[in-house]
Amino acid sequence: MTAKGPVPTQDEVFGYFETLSNWGRWGDDDELGTLNLVTDEVRLAAARAVRHGRSVSCAWEITAPGEMERATTACPCTADMPGAEHMPPAFHADRRWGFSSEHVGLTFHGNTVTHVDSPCHLFWDGAMYNGRPHSLVDPATGSGWAAVTAAANGIVTRGVLLDVARVRGVPWLEPGQGVFPDDLEEAERQQGVRVGPGDAVLLRTGYGRARHESGPSGGITQAGWHASSLPWLHERQVALIGADTPQDVQPSGYDDVLMPVHAVALVAMGLWMLDNCDLEACAATAAELGQWDFQLAVAPVRFAGSSGSPVNPIATF
């Protein structure tokens, strides 16, 4: 499917840095960005979306190298290989009790690990969200602005799954296929749901099914949000977006901006992102129950100065 209306030009996408900007909207010292839209009232409404008591994970299991190595070999620039060193079992002298332990290290940004991006993850023209300079990111201590610890209290809001693969009647979107506002509104219509202020929108392209069946793709060509969806997300006042890919359709269709959704969302809008979700169980549960909204809970690890965190988003229906 292609957009029914005109696709924005590259200059128009660059214009989104101004027209969709939330700089100063919640004050000059704001680091939360669109998470300000998750008010107490929104959280209470999200609790009312729990109608069956069923909960599912929206994250991939993080394994020891192997699968991750295969996934990133073709693109070392996005390598995110966990290194899990499992220690041998240890026992007390009398062997009545023992324990197991491990040392885990990983780079979670990339194409495989489910993680949240905080606004300091990207810069544009040397600036981060709300006009702070990129120089606030220190190699030793991390970011002094809009780090993942801004969301230390967690993200609990209403989640809405928009299953575009299902709407298009395909098992999954092919790599390079973009998702446009028309797709989002058709998914709303077919699923009987409407995205509103403070919501988290999870986009299913079906890549999770392909990954379950064949393993990670290992490249950077992928289905995902087209840049033309950004004004729609801004108008609906979405607090968080997620996808079963790293968000942006690749190639983006624009020569001078590799990932326009990441760039505009994080830098201009302060829109937090959930990359690489596994939405298959969520989609199956939603279809079974006939319910496409739910309470979504995301609890980032409080890594000081970090531009994100591995997470296990939980959808409760």
Score class of each variant (00 low, 15 high):
residue 167 V to W: 06
residue 195 V to Y: 01
residue 198 G to N: 01
residue 171 P to T: 01
residue 170 V to Y: 01
residue 166 R to G: 14
residue 191 Q to E: 14
residue 167 V to N: 09
residue 188 E to K: 03
residue 170 V to N: 02
residue 183 D to P: 03
residue 172 W to R: 13
residue 179 V to E: 08
residue 174 E to R: 15
residue 184 L to P: 06
residue 174 E to H: 12
residue 196 G to Y: 09
residue 185 E to C: 07
residue 178 G to C: 13
residue 164 V to W: 03
residue 160 V to K: 00
residue 178 G to P: 09
residue 164 V to M: 05
residue 183 D to I: 09
residue 168 R to M: 14
residue 193 V to T: 13
residue 186 E to T: 14
residue 172 W to L: 01
residue 161 L to N: 01
residue 187 A to Y: 07
residue 179 V to A: 05
residue 177 Q to K: 11
residue 197 P to A: 15
residue 179 V to I: 14
residue 164 V to L: 10
residue 190 Q to T: 13
residue 192 G to A: 05
residue 176 G to F: 06
residue 187 A to D: 09
residue 191 Q to W: 05
residue 162 L to D: 08
residue 178 G to A: 15
residue 168 R to T: 07
residue 159 G to L: 08
residue 165 A to N: 02
residue 194 R to F: 05
residue 189 R to I: 05
residue 185 E to P: 01
residue 173 L to S: 03
residue 166 R to L: 13
residue 193 V to K: 01
residue 171 P to C: 03
residue 171 P to F: 00
residue 168 R to W: 12
residue 173 L to C: 03
residue 167 V to K: 07
residue 193 V to I: 13
residue 160 V to Q: 08
residue 186 E to C: 02
residue 168 R to L: 15
residue 171 P to N: 02
residue 163 D to Q: 02
residue 191 Q to G: 12
residue 190 Q to C: 11
residue 180 F to Q: 04
residue 185 E to D: 14
residue 161 L to S: 04
residue 173 L to V: 11
residue 190 Q to E: 10
residue 160 V to P: 10
residue 161 L to M: 03
residue 165 A to V: 04
